[in-house]
Write a protein that binds this DNA or RNA. Structure first.
Length: 553
RNA sequence: GGCCCCAUCGUCUAGGCAGGUCUAGGACACCGGGUUUUCAACCCGGCAACAGGGGUUCGAAUCCCCUUGGGGCUACCA
């Protein structure tokens, strides 16, 4: 049976790279009717937070990725938090120590740094120099007493090359001595990734490890460790996927958002600006940043937590590139879109299909068709995918997605009932994101006297030419109508245009701006009918009053 | 610096492992036109690639080598 796992380190939100890894493992398990395990690799006490673990799980659920074993669901190989498996790791470390396959180490971080610098200066790479005689338990005690850090290193067999047979890359060979002895147990008693991962993959009977290419260099060490620990037990098959790169070059990383924000802030960063940003940087229960903190951020010396980044971006008025899964959901992308798009980053079914529902993805997924070369995360294509998915998603499902979106965005449209929302959805055929739908419909639930007029729209449609005059005529016709049905509104506007010998746009656009404040809204007949006669007339009157006399020639 | 991976339109890719059917196919983007009550959507058309150099072969996008370029790793992070 195929068993795969996703093993995130809970250091923050789930980002697209992690989501893709999770998805590929999940697809492969589902495709083979196997099991998919979620394992939390929280062995870095400095960086991991419990909220991040929860957030990662929420994001996975949002994507529709469920796990057969893991936090929340349990399973035969638990616990699934590495921080709760320390006795297991200790046992294996003990075993290696006893068999002289691992040894204690007492170097400080500074000493190691110095060694590394030295190696850099020379021509070779850095590999830890193994001591002639392995320190014993007594030595470790003594070192501890002296306050030196105590770690354990694995003695990587140095006599022959290590060959990794990778599912996507084929045979990758590492020269004997190339892989240096690496730390398996940190001085705080926690295992390192390279160790815990091997032990857990064995105990959880993982058959396929699908992960990013950045792990390829870890594989020979892990493989050697596996042999030392588990002898001839067959190791999992490794599949190292291509890396997802960003258009700014390099691996797509969470740092892009702070970077983008910093770049837009820098040119404006005088004292008042920094103070203003700082004063408005509080998030929920988190206190506002100080001006100094903001200044240091702009200067590149520090990076505040992500919520602050989002808050500042909001205040400054920039849209940051989406990196985390939550960013995409906030921007109005469907989970179906994300899954589909992510699946095609480094994989293709080979027959030209692109827009695929989940079931099709599962049926077609194949490790043999993973791409070797890196791929760039193309937001344009993502948008196109979202448009397609919105089109092919049924109104009921879309309604659920939309409601979740609106809630998240705090949209006034939240006041709408289901029938109205459904109507909005069907009228918005061709919307590219849920945000589009929201944006085009918000006007419905804004108070008549709180319309924000878009300057450009007002100038172009109302002030230039005889927009205001036309609007006044429209107002009177609307007031005189017997039945305020959508059909009647359409008939009235069309015949008015015909009567005045102008295109419908000349009639419709001033009306649109009057009731929405902008030229972007639902189709005009729907807009007017949904708003109702009273609201429409009030808004027209307000508009007329506001802009009369300001018309340009 | 060392080690490892990769290389087809601007981007994602098909084709490569089993060399000829590839004057290299699709999608997105872009450009032009159409439709139109806004934004979209939609329809039609167009531009556009085998990184370079050597081999092997009757024949190479496809196999081999070198160069160049890109990426990854080089932590008591995962």
């Amino acid at each position: 049976m195929v068993v795969t796992r996703f093993a995130p380190s809970p250091t923050g939100y789930l980002h697209v790279g992690g989501a893709r890894t999770a998805l590929f493992n999940w697809l492969w398990a589902r495709r083979n009717r196997g099991r998919f395990i979620l394992r939390i690799e929280d062995t870095d006490r400095k960086r991991n937070t419990p909220t991040a673990a929860k957030q990662v799980m929420d994001d996975l659920r949002w994507l529709g990725i469920d796990w057969d074993e893991g936090p929340g669901v349990g399973g035969p190989s638990g616990p699934y938090l590495q921080s709760e498996r320390r006795d297991i790791y200790d046992r294996y470390v003990r075993q290696l120590l006893d068999e002289q396959k691992a040894y204690y180490c007492f170097d400080t971080a500074d000493e190691l740094d110095a060694l590394r610098k030295q190696a850099q200066a020379g021509k070779g790479g850095f590999a830890y120099r193994r001591p002639e005689r392995f320190p014993q338990a007594g030595d470790a005690e003594k070192a501890r007493a002296e306050g030196r850090p105590v770690t354990v290193r694995f003695a990587v067999p140095q006599d022959e090359p290590i060959v990794v047979n990778d599912v996507v890359r084929g045979r990758v060979s590492f020269a004997a001595g190339e892989v240096g002895d690496f730390i398996i147990l940190k001085s705080d008693g926690f295992p390192t990734y390279n160790f815990a991962c091997v032990v857990d993959d064995y105990m959880m009977k993982i058959t396929h490890v699908i992960r990013g290419q950045e792990h390829l260099m870890n594989t020979p060490g892990q493989q050697a460790l596996w042999r030392a620990l588990f002898g001839d037990a067959p190791p999992p098959k490794y599949a190292h996927m291509s890396v997802t790169v960003s258009d700014s070059g390099g691996k797509l990383s969470k740092r892009e958002r702070p970077k983008a924000l910093r770049e837009t802030m820098r040119p404006r960063a005088n004292k008042e600006f920094i103070d203003a940003v700082a004063a408005n940087s509080a998030v929920d229960t988190w206190p506002a940043l100080t001006s100094l903190q903001v200044k240091e951020f702009v200067g590149g010396q520090s990076v505040p937590d992500m919520p602050y980044i989002d808050r500042m971006a909001d205040f400054v008025g920039v849209a940051l590139p989406e990196i985390n899964i939550v960013d995409f959901s906030k921007s109005g992308y469907l989970p179906e879109t994300m899954v589909n798009f992510l699946a095609l980053l480094g994989w293709s079914p080979g027959d030209g299909r692109e827009i695929m529902p989940l079931g099709e993805l599962i049926d077609s997924f194949d490790l043999a068709r993973l791409t070797k070369s890196n791929s760039l995360f193309d937001r344009h294509k993502l948008l196109a995918f979202n448009t397609e998915h919105i089109k092919m998603t049924g109104p009921e499902t879309l309604l659920e997605h939309l409601k979740a979106y609106l809630k998240n965005a705090g949209s006034p449209l939240l006041a709408a009932d289901d029938p109205l929302l459904l109507r909005v959805i069907t009228t918005c055929e061709g919307a590219r994101t849920l945000a589009d739908i929201d944006r085009k419909s918000r006007f419905i639930f804004i108070d008549d006297d709180k319309i924000e007029y878009d300057v450009k729209a007002v100038n172009k449609v109302l002030l230039k030419g005889d927009g205001l005059a036309m609007l006044a005529v429209v107002r009177d016709r609307l007031a005189a109508m017997e039945h305020f049905s959508q059909e009647a509104i359409e008939d009235m506007l069309r015949s008015l245009a015909e009567e005045k010998q102008v295109g419908l746009g000349k009639v419709a656009q001033p009306l649109r701006v009057a009731i929405c404040g902008t030229t972007i809204s639902l189709p005009i007949f729907d807009s007017v009918q949904i708003l109702g006669r009273e609201g429409t007339l009030t808004r027209i009157d307000n508009t007329l009053k506001k802009f009369e006399g300001t018309a340009k020639s």
